[in-house]
């Protein structure tokens, strides 16, 4: 009976496991193997020699990779906290207007159902120095036009534009999740806080955030992982060739990996890509573990 049960279960799992074996587990293992080859040619499967550190050394010495890591860290480090704080504030504000909540929520959700490339292009045009709406609005406040994305745009300007797009894009999901998270908090705590004469800010800081902390932790981990993989928004704003106002000025780790995408016929290229993607994997893993450990002390359940 036990045996039969086992067999039956594997039968149900077969379609999944076969596909994953080929397209998930094999490439995962292969990435590690390939990253240890020197002069590897994927199509013929030949390599010059095995050297575990060679490709990592090449990548880590590459100034473009350094730039990609810095850009990626800035994107994750700014967009995640800002968007989490903003979406929390929005979710809490929505809570106090039950009647219009659904309406606003629907609007706020729209960025979730867009095509990142299409909306990235719309942003690119919004940030256009002469024809864009952003500089028009800034003009109302007496700020002179900024060159956001043009050929001579400053690093800060490009980065700000990219961050705004990233935050705009990520708000929808977080607002929705935090709103439902708030609905699950027992209303009695808020009644009790009123009786205890807590101000709105105190309620937010001392009641809402702690009670929501498991969810905030979860969302911040997934957001950091997502932000570390930033790519589509860069392509939307700058195109997949230039990757920045100046060539590669906004390159990210993922974009760095992808620049080897047409190099499958070139010797060793794919090993560089593998090494870079493994580094990304480790960064992701380390940051999420760190986040979990650090927050364990502050999360209350």
């Amino acid at each position: 009976m036990e045996k039969k049960n086992n067999l039956r279960a594997w039968l149900y799992l077969a379609p999944l496991l076969i596909l994953m074996a080929v397209f998930t587990f094999y490439p995962l293992i292969n990435a590690f193997i390939v990253s240890s080859y020197k002069g590897y040619l994927p199509l013929s499967g030949t390599a010059d020699e095995i050297d575990f550190f060679y490709n990592f050394g090449v990548i880590l010495k590459n100034p473009l990779f350094k730039k990609a890591v810095i850009n990626t860290f800035i994107i994750a480090g700014v967009s995640v906290p800002v968007s989490i704080l903003l979406s929390l504030l929005i979710a809490v504000s929505l809570k106090s207007i039950p009647k219009l909540k659904g309406f606003f929520q629907t609007i706020y959700f729209l960025p979730y159902v867009t095509n990142t490339i299409a909306i990235g292009m719309a942003f690119a045009f919004m940030f256009h120095e002469d024809y864009g709406v952003i500089n028009l609005i800034l003009g109302w406040f007496g700020i002179s036009p900024v060159n956001w994305l043009g050929g001579t745009a400053s690093y800060a300007a490009q980065m700000i534009a990219l961050l705004i797009l990233t935050i705009w894009n990520g708000l929808a999901f977080k607002i929705l999740v935090f709103t439902s998270g708030l609905e699950n908090i027992d209303k009695q705590y808020y009644d009790a806080a009123k009786i205890d004469s807590a101000s709105k800010w105190t309620v937010f800081k001392r009641i809402t955030v702690p009670l929501l902390s498991p969810l905030i932790l979860y969302i911040s981990i997934t957001s950091v992982i997502g932000a570390l993989k930033a790519y589509n928004s860069v392509v939307g704003l700058f195109g997949d060739v230039k990757l920045g106002a100046q060539n590669n000025s906004m390159i990210t780790i993922v974009a760095f990996v992808y620049q080897y995408k047409d190099g499958y016929t070139d010797k060793g290229y794919i090993s560089y890509a593998a090494a870079a993607s493994i580094i990304l994997f480790f960064i992701t893993a380390v940051i999420s573990i760190l986040q979990t450990v650090v927050s364990k002390k502050r999360v209350h359940y």
Binding site: M20, F23, P27, L28, K229, K261, S277, L280
Partner: peptide, 26 residues
């Protein structure tokens, strides 16, 4: 164990797979 392994793969960035998968498809 299998379920835990599967959940673990969610952590892995897809970029790791993509070039090998390209070769596989080839």
């Amino acid at each position: 164990i299998l379920f835990a392994i599967l959940l673990g793969t969610m952590m892995v960035p897809g970029e790791i797979f993509i070039l090998t998968n390209f070769v596989t498809v080839y």
